[in-house]
């Protein structure tokens, strides 16, 4: 399922982050950062909504568009009923599509928006994603103040909101093509090893992308995976080279790039829907605009993990969507 686009451009992005990302290596590329996880709100859920609102305001400011001119908003996050996206984007746009693709939501949203734009149903769209370390801890793991000891393979949910403005008006960065992922089940059971659970989905989507487009790894200046973390990244590279003889040279993982893994206590790296978006919309977008990178393939990985299903002895399924960004 690969779609080619002739008329979709990534015009502007906005990124808002929390304190951990602020202390990471990409700090200078973010539009706004907070020192506190509450962002001046009473609860973490409200803080995440605030992040989404902030990112939308920032995007309007940077791109100079009016919130009534936006045709479509595609948003997703990790909260139940994707409340951060729905509450946060209230009042913006003439249509809203809520999506859930776990950590792959960032690219899934872009693919949906790009397909709408390419088919000329709409002229522009905003794709937004958010996650908050504390809200996802509360929802998926233990209470936030519990501080349960976790293994090194566990990942650390990034805090922030990121949005991008896709349009059919020509600009520097083009959305060139995208490959939609499918659900992969490799009988993974460990909720503290998401990198291992998600790597098969990334491999599947990458192979299908290469197969359907006829491209090889050399075609891209950079191939990025979403949030596999340090261990998942190694599994991904190793399995591709051993099983399929594909050597990835220009490859990195957003989860590894977002934090300083030596200094910050974030275990195997960042995760969450906003992880891949924060890295792509800030640092990568900047590099594309400066033409230091020309072709980038982003593979956003998501673990379709539910504590309920895990307690009922079901596997952790995963999914991965790919999008190719090109400089004109």
């Amino acid at each position: 399922m690969t779609f080619y686009y002739k008329n979709v451009y990534l015009e502007e992005t906005a990124t808002i982050t929390g304190p951990y990302e602020k202390n990471g290596p990409l700090r200078n590329y973010f539009d706004k950062t907070y020192d506190d996880l509450y962002m001046g709100e009473k609860s973490f859920e409200k803080a995440e909504i605030k992040l989404v609102k902030d990112s939308l305001i920032m995007l309007m400011k940077k791109s100079g568009i009016n919130k009534k001119e936006v045709d479509l908003v595609v948003g997703g996050d990790l909260l139940n009923q994707i409340t951060a996206s729905t509450y946060g984007s209230y009042g913006v746009g003439n249509g809203f599509v809520g999506i859930y693709g776990a950590c792959s939501s960032s690219v899934l949203g872009m693919i949906i928006a790009a397909n709408f734009i390419e088919s000329n149903f709409i002229n522009n769209a905003i794709c937004l994603v958010s996650s908050h370390n504390m809200t996802s801890e509360k929802q998926f793991r233990y209470p936030t103040e519990y501080g349960a000891p976790r293994p090194k393979t566990a990942t650390f949910t990034a805090t922030g909101a990121a949005c991008s403005y896709l349009t059919n008006e020509e600009s520097d960065v083009r959305v060139e093509c995208a490959t939609l992922g499918r659900i992969i089940d490799y009988e993974q059971k460990d909720p503290n090893g998401m990198g291992k659970a998600m790597a098969p989905a990334a491999i599947d989507t990458l192979l299908r992308h290469f197969q359907e487009t006829g491209r090889t790894a050399d075609y891209y200046d950079l191939i990025l995976t979403g949030d596999l973390g340090i261990y998942g990244k190694e599994i991904f590279k190793d399995y591709l080279s051993k099983q399929y003889k594909i050597k990835l040279i220009n490859y990195n993982d957003c989860g590894v790039m977002l934090y300083d893994l030596k200094k910050q206590k974030v275990l195997a790296g960042a995760s969450g829907p906003v992880c891949s978006a924060l890295v792509t919309y800030s640092f990568i977008f900047h590099q594309l605009k400066k033409k230091k990178l020309k072709r980038v393939l982003l593979l956003a990985t998501g673990a379709l993990f539910s504590p309920t299903m895990l307690y009922q002895k079901e596997n952790i399924n995963s999914i991965c969507h790919a999008i190719s960004l090109e400089v004109i």
């Binding site: 291992k196 098969p200 261990y231």
Partner: peptide, 23 residues
């Protein structure tokens, strides 16, 4: 679908937990 080859390669990249230290 259980992929034994994947499991084998993935298990080569396990984290070294300091179990004795923790204990």
């Amino acid at each position: 679908m259980r992929n034994t080859k994947y499991e084998r390669i993935a298990n080569e990249h396990k984290a070294d937990e300091n179990r004795i230290g923790n204990a």
